[in-house]
Design a binder for these strands. Structure first.
Lengths: 255, 255
DNA sequence: AGCGAAACTTGATGAAGGTCAAGGCCGAGC
DNA sequence: GCTCGGCCTTGACCTTCATCAAGTTTCGCT
């Protein structure tokens, strides 16, 4: 039982940005073939899509906003297993049957498509481009889970936080003259649950990083990183993160 | 840098048992269609199949013996990400491009099939049973990775060790009059690298579990658990493990 | 049988991070 | 503009586990 209630976060500033910043989905056109087969879900902030462990194998496609894949272990220990951005997929059979399994939206204006897995994988379309894309995306999600396990298991608190910031910068950041700006879609509590730390500890670590100039606030819920290379140096898996995410940032900066 | 060199372990007793105990592979017949397309690899104990991050997407099928999927983080921090038993699959694209990624056999007499992914997924056979099986198996591996991340992130040392023992009991154990016997294919160091603990700590925890009667040695490399329910009670994810692994043990005991 | 190396055990000590507690900041709504 | 509640910060203290060190046990080999 958490001693303090920490459950909400403002999103006013985030709304507009996320639209423009995250509107472009990789492989947009291929996924769009699924739209007629899918149930489109509009989400509000903190809205939870519960996932029962006995439900049919189902595919979720994140279209807009961030979604958190979460589950809990016995005794109120909630964990965030994955942070999903637009274009990411979530297959229920690829997650363990833990209590409290759910997808939670961090934004108002989020959009998720839900498709029954058999329909998506062998539906009427029988489209080999779609099949390959799904297979590749699911493999990528698995790779991220494995990396996350390695990060949580093998890195110190500071390194974990640096990894999270570096990953978000690479996945969703925008390079500008001043550095890289990205949205931090989740609260300290969420970060703690994702990195298997404690919210107080996360706060301390972030404060230290701020003091060292590694990151700076750029409006509520947004981070500015003036020197992404310095941030990457704090993070032992930087090379791996770069390899996994199209390194548009780095090249954009160099160009 | 580990202060002590700890790199070998005897397998004399293990050899014979693993043949009989693990000879039966789930979905044997469907996978066998891949044999003509695969490179069959016979392994020796501690043999390492290195996996370069730039290699083509490749599928490995474990046929006999245990294999450990490992990778390292910067600075000699090796981690075991997954323990594979016969019937399990490993797709390189579903693992992050970390340095030192490899599959290591724990047994002499291991056997692994290697197939290029495009061949396996859309090869000449174009077999929908095989396709579905592969897809399901890969999802299962991903689910195990996610569960492992949750265990490492959310449980105490004792709970993690209990979870590992419980999982191995469910996955590979044999019920008998005295309880459940299963092979412990990995050393203290390996356990530590899998659970993100320290080998000394693992030793202490196992000693404590032995003292409490939760487990007992049953010959080198084999464990006897007289009361599997008691072991499961130590482990907060027991219900999840049961759901993920055909609970033949429990039913066999009850029957 | 005996040696050497790997593997395991166990104690002493310290550091990283969790827990508890108190307060500060800021946006939403009146 | 004020107040309420969610969220964040920071300090003091304590637990868990890593590290270091010194054994003991097991097994392969001659």
């Amino acid at each position: 039982m958490g001693p303090h209630a920490r459950t909400r976060r403002t999103a006013a500033a985030a709304k507009e940005h996320s639209g423009s910043q995250l509107g472009l989905i990789r492989n947009q056109s291929i996924f769009e073939k699924l739209e007629p087969l899918a149930v489109v879900i509009r989400t509000r902030r903190r809205q939870k899509l519960a996932i029962a462990s006995d439900q049919e194998d189902t595919l979720y496609l994140v279209r807009r906003g961030f979604m958190l894949a979460q589950a809990s272990l016995a005794g109120n220990r909630t964990q965030i297993l994955s942070i999903l951005t637009p274009g990411d997929v979530y297959r229920t059979a690829a997650m363990p049957p833990l209590a409290g399994t759910a997808l939670t939206s961090t934004n108002d204006q989020g959009e998720v498509w839900r498709v029954r897995w058999p329909v998506a994988s062998e539906g009427p379309s029988r489209d080999s481009a779609l099949e390959n894309l799904l297979s590749r995306q699911l493999a990528e999600q698995a790779a991220r889970l494995a990396l996350h396990a390695a990060i949580v298991g093998g890195l110190t608190g500071e390194e974990r936080v640096a990894s999270l910031y570096a990953e978000l910068a690479l996945r969703t950041g925008k390079a500008s003259h001043a550095g890289v700006t990205f949205e931090m879609p989740i609260s300290r509590v969420d970060i703690a649950e994702y990195l298997s730390l404690n919210a107080d500890t996360v706060s301390r670590i972030v404060s230290r990083m701020r003091a060292r100039g590694l990151i700076a606030e750029a409006g509520r819920g947004f981070i500015l990183c003036r020197d992404i290379e310095a941030l990457m140096r704090e993070c032992p898996v930087a090379r791996t993160l770069e390899a996994m995410h199209p390194a548009k940032l780095i090249t954009a900066q160099v160009a």
